[in-house]
């Protein structure tokens, strides 16, 4: 499954798209996986996950067909 990354999260990972292991089944597990693989993400003031282009709670399930993205603190405007 692919994971989209944007902004500083993309810079930390060094890629705009990374493979996500199938062991990750919900948003909380994804955040733990990110913090393990990219410790610098722990320094961000917030880290949101979007599932199918909607902000997702930690309990939300992630399925293989979902579009999943890492949303670091936004800074538009």
């Amino acid at each position: 499954m692919g994971l989209l990354l944007f902004g500083v999260a993309k810079d930390i990972a060094g890629a705009a798209l990374v493979d996500l292991p199938e062991t990750v089944t919900n948003v909380a597990e994804l955040k733990r996986w990110l913090y393990d693989h990219y410790p610098a993400m722990q320094q961000l003031s917030s880290l949101m996950i979007a599932v199918n282009r909607e902000y997702a709670a930690d309990t939300q399930m992630i399925h293989a067909s979902d579009e999943v993205a890492v949303i670091p603190p936004v800074s538009g405007g």
């Binding site: 902004g7 500083v8 670091p72 936004v74 800074s75 538009g76 405007g77």
Partner: peptide, 24 residues
Amino acid sequence: TIDTLKETVPIWKKEFFMDGEIGQ
């Protein structure tokens, strides 16, 4: 509208400073 846009819309800026540093 502008206050909420800045809080919720996934847009990011990167700042390029005169001293050569880059900030998020």
